[in-house]
């Protein structure tokens, strides 16, 4: 059984967020929930300013605090290292959200895709209502509903349960890369098996000094970062007094 991991090459990353939007799309994630997200920072003072961007997602920790705390094992580990959630068992206590150091777990506060439920149209008889559009197109929840998500997790999660990134377990299972990896225009995400010494993931982890988020907590994330978002050069200097 492989042990999946992701390497994010920050130098390749252009901070465009294609990962996040394509993830929304692939997993039919509702408004306001970010399975794939980012941590950004504008550092320095004008004119010495730069912008930094770190893409984030569930770290699929080996020692996952969310799994440890879940009273019903709704949050659980798969043998392939993926931290998976089963909404069927989720009682909605949100303890996993308290436990997760990375803020990657979200709660369905209400029915998903609320804006697509509206029944009004902006111009009577000339435009559709969102609900009518969904119906007519034949989607579910949204017109661009992705039915493939439904293979391992309800295609759209009900209210009252949490949800988070699953490393696209439904794709991985079919031998496809997670959607964010496929969709990254910069090829900044590299996915593979940690147990395979020859995997591209291991090749990169051996080449660079990777870091992971909040390593001191001992969660052992499966998402690694290499290189810098801003790899700028600067004029040589020893500083001065």
């Amino acid at each position: 059984m492989p042990r999946y991991a992701m390497v994010i090459d920050l130098q390749r990353c252009v901070g465009c967020g294609s990962c996040s939007i394509s993830c929304r799309n692939e997993n039919n994630v509702t408004e306001g929930i970010y399975w794939s997200h980012k941590i950004t920072e504008t550092s320095g003072k004008f004119p010495n300013v730069r912008y930094h961007y770190i893409p984030t997602l569930c770290n699929h920790c080996t020692n996952a605090p969310c799994v440890r705390g879940c009273p019903t094992e709704a949050m659980h580990k798969l043998e392939n290292g993926i931290t998976m959630h089963d909404p069927k068992k989720c009682i909605g206590c949100r303890y996993c959200m308290i436990n997760c150091p990375y803020g990657v777990i979200y709660f369905n506060w209400k029915d998903a895709h609320p804006s697509w439920r509206a029944g009004n149209s902006v111009i009577k008889e000339v435009t559709a209502s969102p609900a009518e559009e969904v119906r007519k197109v034949g989607g579910k929840g949204t017109p661009y509903y992705n039915p493939e998500r439904d293979a391992t997790l309800p295609g759209i999660r009900p209210k009252g349960v949490v949800e988070k990134c699953t490393f696209c377990d439904h794709r991985v299972k079919r031998g496809k890369l997670p959607r964010c990896v496929e969709a990254c225009p910069a090829d900044a995400r590299i996915f593979g098996d940690l147990d395979d010494p020859e995997s591209q993931v291991n090749q990169l982890l051996g080449k660079f000094r990777p870091f992971r988020l909040k390593e001191a907590l001992g969660t052992e994330p499966a998402v690694f970062y290499i290189r810098d978002f801003s790899s700028a050069g600067y004029p040589r200097t020893k500083g001065g007094i």
Binding site: A118, S121, V122, V126, A128, S129, E133
Partner: peptide, 10 residues
């Protein structure tokens, strides 16, 4: 799939 697209001439 914008619901506000006009669906007919007006």
């Amino acid at each position: 799939y914008d619901p506000d697209r006009i669906k007919t001439p007006m």
